[in-house]
Structure formats: C-alpha cells, structure tokens
Amino acid sequence: MGEVIVITSGKGGVGKTTTTANVGTGLSMLNKKVVLVDTDIGLRNLDVVLGLENRIVYNLVDIVEGNCKLKQAMIKNKDNDNLYLIAAAQQRDKTSVTPEQMKKLTQELKAEFDYVIIDCPAGIEQGFKNAIAGADRAIIVTTPEVSAVRDADRIIGLLEADEMKQTQLVVNRLRPDMVKRGDMMSADDVVDVLRVDLLGIVPDDEDVVVATNRGEPLVGDSKSLAGQAYMNVCRRITGEQVPFLDLEAKKGLFGTIASVFKKK
C-alpha cells in the first residue's frame, strides 16, 4: 500500500507545481512507482512543467464522471516507466470534483503506486479541500517571505484541524547570499516561526527556470544546487537520513571570487 502526499502552500507562485514535478520525478528515479495528480482544475500547469501537455486525452474530471477508465487518464512519462500523470481539466472548475471522490480515487491509486503526489491549487477553498481529502501526509512549500510564511501558517492550522498525520516543510527559493547579509529570513527562522519539521531547503536557481522552459524537471542534475536539493528531499521522503546541503559554502566560494573581481 502506497502513500498519498499533498503538496500545498496557501499562497500562489511559491513553487508548488515545480516541487510536485521534481519530487515526483525524483522518487521515480529512486525506483518508486509514482503517480502525480493535478487538482488545479481550470488552471492546470503540472502537464507543461513535465512536458506532457500534448499527450492529454482524458483528465481528472473524466475519471470521476466515468467518461473513461482510470488507466486511460494516466499519462506515462516520456522516459520514465515509473512515473504517471493525471492531468486536471482545463475547461471546468474546482466544484467538478468532491473531497469524497478524491478519497476514493487516491485509495484506488495507492493500491497500485508507491507514492501518489497531489498538486494542490493556491487558496483554501474547494480546490484545497479536494487536494487534502485523501492525503496521508502533507508537504508545505513556502519562500522566505512574510506573505508566503503567513499563508503557510494558515495552511498548517487547517491541516491540523483536518488531523493530517504528518506535515513537513520545504523552504523554496532561498538566497544564501541574502541570508548571509541579513536581508532574508533563513530556513531556521522560518522553521522557528512555523514549528514544523524541515524536509528540505531549495536554493533560488536559474536552472529551475531553464528546466521549466524545456519541460524537463531538474531533479538529479548534479551540476545544479536546486537539482541536488530536490533529490535530497525525495530521499528524505523515502525515510533516508540525508544531511542538508551546505548552501553557504558554495556561495562562499563564488562570493570570494566575486569579491576579488570587485576589488579590482
């Protein structure tokens, strides 16, 4: 029996979909059987981040309305047999699916997959309620900004009220250079305020934009810090103990080089 993990944040634009794509892809690279479910009905994007936008025939709403079999709506990933996507409907809205239907669907999926990863829409309304309905655990994505952390706190409260068994945090788009000079909250600051377990720190990285442009998740790219950070998140999800990347040290090296040039 697999596990259902919802990836949520409250605030939009902090990297839920990017995190979902990278965590899903990373887990499949670790030989886990994974299905990703986009619950952002009406504003779907997980398909483009994964580069699967041209392969969608049936979607989440088709499944719950019985227009197709579950298998028909599962889109196999390009070069990974362990990874599937169930896309959201684009021409419908969040009320097209109920939390009960999501519970039933995730129950079916976790009988067959090691991990069922749910990409949650922004907000705390119906889309959020659908996304968390069948989840065993939650990953909160936030950036080190007042607005994003405030919304994350609200989501943590709602998940507690819903009796979510495990809630962990990913601090996304951290700028170690800004943290170092005191102009950005550190991951420790965010954890201190939110009081949840830290699952990962993903540095702000241009490679994420490039990877998203191409529709190929970055995870596992050893040349990219964000790619390494995402793979570490995946390994921690499977229960492995992985130390946090030393982002400061890397930046320190670049910082030293940069400061040498600046002096001249």
Binding site: V146, R150, D153, R154, G182, M184, M185, V193
Partner: peptide
C-alpha cells in the same frame, strides 16, 4: 536592523493575531 530580522519580527506579530 537587518531587513531579514524586521521580516521575522513582523511575521511573528502578524501570526500572533492570525492564530
């Protein structure tokens, strides 16, 4: 005061009233 510290203090205050 560093802006990072200002952010953390403001966040703490706003969360107290939110919570």
């Amino acid at each position: 005061k560093n802006s990072g510290d200002v952010a953390k203090d403001r966040l703490k205050m706003v969360l107290v009233s939110d919570r």
